[in-house]
């Protein structure tokens, strides 16, 4: 067992599961989408990105790309949330919640690709 692989797989899966947890639920209802979960998803996603840095293989490059996509979507979602919550008079309206959640849905897709690659890579390994 390779401890590096454990850490790597852990963060990639955790990023996907947290993202999924935030995403699931009625898209316009704030009660289903906890902002702390978004925060956790973003942090774990950032760590996963850093873990993928410096891998020179082709698969490593795709990993990094999917991770960067997820980061971008989640950061955008966080900015939208901060803007809606603090900078608008209306606060978190259902439209705003829907925007945030749909952005995180995009990130979820990227994270799922990441997980798929991880699984495929693991299955390809003969050792």
């Amino acid at each position: 067992m390779n401890p590096e692989k454990v850490v790597f797989g852990f963060f990639i899966l955790l990023a996907a599961t947290l993202n999924f947890g935030f995403f699931i639920g009625d898209i316009g209802v704030a009660a289903y989408h906890d902002v702390y979960e978004l925060f956790a998803a973003l942090v774990v996603s950032l760590i996963a990105t850093i873990l993928k840095l410096g891998d020179r293989t082709q698969i490593g490059a795709v990993h990094l790309a999917t991770s960067l996509v997820a980061d971008l979507q989640l950061i955008t979602a966080a900015i939208v949330w901060a803007y809606a919550e603090h900078a608008t008079a209306a606060g978190l309206t259902p439209e705003m919640v829907a925007r945030i959640v749909s952005l995180s849905g995009g990130a979820l897709l990227a994270n799922l690709v990441s997980v798929t690659i991880l699984v495929a890579e693991t299955l390809m390994q003969r050792r």
Partner: peptide
Amino acid sequence: VLRRLRGPLILMVT
């Protein structure tokens, strides 16, 4: 560069 900075970066984010 980024690979060498991976440890400090993760520490930082955490």
